[in-house]
Design a binder for these strands. Structure first.
Lengths: 252, 252
DNA sequence: TACCCTAATATTGTCAACAATCGGACGACA
DNA sequence: TGTCGTCCGATTGTTGACAATATTAGGGTA
């Protein structure tokens, strides 16, 4: 899963950049649970920095919709809801469908070969694990990531890869994603690549939309059998770094 | 054009909020031309505030893609390009198509009546001005705004109304939008409302997508005849508030 | 004259202290 | 006993000063 969000190489990395990247990872991977209140003095002392860059980082997290902020009250990590996840899937259906169409129009033959190679790698791993962990290994997101990049639409790429992508990862960390669809999803990926290789934009969009819609419906079913009513991921509200089991954070 | 972005009523409006709203308006309406370097000390003294909340506001502008920032160098208002505008239209085609579909599924009968009333109001104004100013008066954006809100998808609403909407307005202020399509656009709006009233989601999406696609193609033609090669809106780079003709800014 | 290196300057990034605001606890009163 | 008002503590918002970095002007050399 190389260079998912390559902020590397760009000279001049500020302190706020690093703490932002770090906080985002901590939030997405569940280290800071959703619903947690973000205490500025606490986090600042933990990271050994001032509140200035920290506030900057929190502001960016708010822009990514990873934290919610109320004036004079504070910021807290978003509470993931079933409704929001479904909305996210609807958005992806529209946006990634568009990405697939553009990719079919503009993707270079060389990149298509790369995409095929990626799928073969997934197949090797998938065969080993009998399709139980396609979503957990981020292989699914990796595939979608490439399609999006191949669309060539800068604004679309930023939107999906900088914001929605991290939210999807957060949901996957919170609710362990269903594996029942892993093999099906893998095959659908293959169909998408075929449509792109055939230079059939409408078909590529159609399959991609159906692919994401199927995922959404699968998630809906999962929710319905687990928790009939719209349930939140983390009922308990804990304070950030209340359990500093990992000790002080390493230097930025 | 009431309550386009009603931040009213929410208690606790911070200083950064106000300067953000103000800077955004100044940028969108061209008061601060695109390409302008944002000087923090300059603006801070002009607004009579410290650099802290100003930096916060600039950070939010960056999140809206209204300014671009490079570490240790500074922020400058985005340069609008032809390519970016076309990308924006493509995004809108996908997103607002989705919005129209959802609106057809979920919009209340009362809201549909409101929408019809809005169109009648537009017609009265349009008849007066013989279809020369449908875009300039923001009537077009107002209509789209309502459809988006009616979709009920919170994430979609935030994305379109908080970010893309202001960018579209900015483009309209920079390049005075074409009026040749005004009457056609108005009629297409009517067809969209009909599809929604018929509870025909697929039709609503189809018409909306064609509607936006037509706008895009119209813009493309406009560009081609005006400037054959991809040209920028503002060739000259000026410094912000270099011409403080309006004097000092009113208090926040 | 063109190029490179150096130094001055201005701007941004960061820090620590001050002011404003909110949430919760305590106590008074119906 | 329940509810309202007030006070206190803590957190956030804001400010001005300090440090680090990039841009620009100038001089020296090939």
């Amino acid at each position: 899963m190389p260079d998912l969000n390559d902020q590397l190489g760009q000279q001049g990395v500020t302190l706020a950049d690093r703490v932002f990247a770090r906080l985002r990872q901590a939030i997405v991977e569940g280290e800071i649970p959703s619903g947690t209140k973000i205490s500025e003095p606490e986090l600042a002392s933990e990271y050994g920095i001032s509140r200035g860059p920290l506030r900057d980082a929190i502001g960016r997290l708010e822009a990514c919709h990873l934290v919610e902020r109320r004036p004079n009250v504070g910021a807290r990590v978003v509470s993931l809801t079933q409704e929001d996840l479904l909305e996210l899937y609807l958005l992806r259906e529209a946006l990634e469908g568009m990405a697939a169409r553009l990719a079919a129009e503009r993707m270079s033959g060389r990149d298509i070969d790369e995409l095929r190679k990626l799928l073969r790698q997934h197949q090797e791993r998938a065969e080993l694990q009998e399709g139980i962990a396609y979503f957990q290994t981020e292989g699914d997101l990796d595939f979608h990531y490439r399609i999006i990049k191949a669309s060539g639409n800068v604004r679309l790429i930023k939107l999906l890869c900088d914001d929605l992508y991290h939210l999807m990862r957060m949901y996957r960390f919170q609710f362990g994603m269903a594996s029942s669809r892993a093999l099906i999803a893998f095959r659908e990926h293959g169909h998408i690549v075929e449509a792109i290789a055939d230079r059939d934009p409408e078909m590529a969009e159609l399959i991609m939309r159906r692919h994401i819609r199927s995922s959404r419906i699968n998630v809906e079913l999962l929710f319905d059998e687990k928790a009939p009513k719209g349930a939140r991921a983390t009922p308990a509200i804990r304070s950030a770094s209340a359990d500093s089991s990992a000790g002080a954070a390493p230097p930025l």
